[in-house]
């Protein structure tokens, strides 16, 4: 339902994504891992056309994202309304939450229901409250976002996206801006979504989450998909030296905690 064919992206002279081919099936959970600067966030943002890719194509449920074919065969940037239309079944959760601080939690969730879906206020309110309930924050409906913890804000952001009933959700390092002790509550919500069959693409540094929840893990380095496969195959038996080294760094860091299991973060 989400597919990239030969997609490339350059910033000036610098190529950040090179010939990306990727196909994501319904209900599949795909985690993108890789070192900083490997292009994983850029890849995710390109799949939502928050970055306009230069070559290749991205299809969302069969529709070309971001560009239209002109009559002479060349492609031109889509008009904003067309872009929104192709994105309509896509939700996105950002590292920095990006809630609107001047609207209450409830209003954050209701805003797009009212103005994009054109729902009546009562119906939007009921749906927003139900969605907040799902992420465990219905009692915070009238709070301003700034008064919530990072973990709560990110759950509101998930609810805001979820209320629009997307078919596929993209997560751009959803826990990277959080205090370690708040990571778990966000991952829990994401895991619940995955179990309910949501199609998800997740850029993450949480190897535990990738190992337990992902159907497939993609390892990116220098703008290439170096290796991909089921998490256990990839983590237990990396084929490329680059991935082995990357995982080695993680293991080394985590081994510091092995002596004190209580310090080991539980992801679920």
């Amino acid at each position: 339902m989400l597919e990239a064919r030969g997609m490339s992206k350059r910033f000036g002279e610098h190529t950040v994504l090179q010939d990306i081919n990727l196909s994501i099936q319904r209900s599949e959970v795909v985690c993108l891992i890789g070192p900083s600067g490997s292009g994983k966030s850029t890849l995710l943002r390109s799949l939502a056309f928050l970055e306009n890719y230069d070559d290749g194509e991205v299809f969302v449920e069969g529709e070309l994202l971001g560009y239209d074919r002109a009559s002479d065969g060349r492609r031109v940037r889509s008009r904003p309304s067309r872009l929104s239309d192709v994105r309509r079944n896509m939700g996105m959760v950002f590292q920095q939450f990006n809630l609107w601080p001047h609207l209450s939690v409830l209003e954050n969730v209701m805003e797009a229901l009212l103005r994009v879906r054109g729902m009546k206020k009562d119906a939007a309110r009921r749906l927003a409250l139900a969605t907040l309930e799902k992420v465990g924050l219905a009692e915070k409906a009238d709070a301003w976002p700034n008064r919530l913890s990072g973990g709560q804000q990110q759950r509101v952001a998930i609810a805001r996206s979820l209320a629009m009933s997307p078919a596929i959700m993209l997560f751009d390092e959803p826990t990277s801006a959080l205090d370690p002790e708040l990571v778990g509550e966000v991952l829990q919500v994401m895991r619940q979504l995955a179990e309910e069959g949501m199609t998800m693409v997740v850029v993450t540094h949480e190897m535990g989450f990738a190992a337990r929840v992902a159907d497939r893990v993609l390892f990116l380095d220098q703008g290439h998909i170096v290796e991909q496969g089921p998490p256990m195959t990839l983590f237990k038996n990396p084929q490329s030296p680059r991935l082995a080294q990357f995982l080695g760094n993680y293991l080394e860091r985590n081994s510091l905690f092995e002596a004190a299991p209580a310090l080991n973060r539980v992801d679920d």
Binding site: A48, L50, S81, S84, M92, N98, W100, A112
Partner: peptide, 15 residues
């Protein structure tokens, strides 16, 4: 912050 516009755009809000 630009991210707030991106969040709104991803939800389908117009410019």
């Amino acid at each position: 912050p630009r991210g707030q516009q991106e969040a709104a755009a991803m939800l389908g809000m117009t410019a």
